[in-house]
Design a binder for these strands. Structure first.
Lengths: 148, 148
DNA sequence: ATACAATAATTGTATATACAAATGTATTTT
DNA sequence: AAAATACATTTGTATATACAATTATTGTAT
């Protein structure tokens, strides 16, 4: 992935800016790859992320603030994201009996079923994205990312 | 930046997935920092990017496909992005006389003026984002990103 | 017990983005 | 020259996301 070629510039980009642009380019590539995988299932990457969180609860319902805390990309309208999952039959939502301000969200069995299929496809995509990166390099990336 | 802490999970995340999640977390952080800087100017990161491309043209007008080629984050509706810039008085657009299918987009002097101020603020943000990263590490990141 | 503040989620509204279809123009083929 | 194709952009429509205001419920202070 060559930055200058992709954004078609002849100018020398300062190392700092170049790194950030590079960062964004790789991130876009990853996001597009994942979005492509998820498209047939009609869920966004964020919706997929929430489904995984819900499954990870092992039956214990999640409320909105829990979801927000755990989402990789936090966002300012989880209510509507969950609306979409419910509409698709992948989740359900009831008012929390012990605290009627809260809400209890669960993944449905249909949601689990579809998520399982998505998982397989997503793992394949992950492998493909990282096919040129060695374990040592993955560790390097992680420790560099820690500095941000 | 600790992945497990941020997404509040106790489970061990496989190195591959962890790297990608880490990637996204850092990217989100960068995007938020930049968005915060740009918010007072009422432009999005993509709009800022297009303004910079327009300025980089040095008076030579750009058409939509040129913009699309050079944008860091390509998107499927550059017409409307440019609409917004025109609405804000930062750009103008005329039909290309030599090929009436095309369009000629230029940055206005108002656009240049505001962009100059944004640049200063954005550079500060960039510095702050990278404050813990050495030159050597920046080079490492770039060469690792090349593998994607 | 009432008033006030804090918490949790929802709703309204605006902008951003994705994608397909449509429009208008230029080029190529027959 | 007319028809077909290719090109460049725009428009319609749907979804996604951001942010502020609102609603409903609970907790706290007087």
């Amino acid at each position: 992935m060559n930055v200058e070629k992709i954004i078609k510039t002849e100018k020398e980009i300062p190392l700092e800016s170049r790194t950030i642009i590079h960062f964004m380019l790789v991130n876009n590539k990853i996001n597009e790859a994942f979005a492509d995988i998820l498209k047939p299932y009609d869920v966004s990457l964020q919706q997929f992320n929430v489904l995984r969180i819900l499954r990870g609860q092992n039956g214990k319902p999640a409320n909105l603030s829990t979801l927000n805390e755990r989402m990789v990309t936090k966002m300012s309208n989880t209510t509507r994201l969950v609306d979409k999952l419910i509409l698709k039959g992948f989740a359900n939502r009831i008012v929390c009996p012990s605290n009627r301000r809260k809400v209890e969200i669960n993944i449905t069995s249909e949601g689990k079923k579809v998520l399982k299929r998505m998982d397989t496809a997503m793992q394949k995509a992950e492998k493909s994205i990282l096919k040129n990166i060695s374990t040592k390099e993955l560790e390097q990336l992680n420790s560099l990312f820690n500095k941000f």
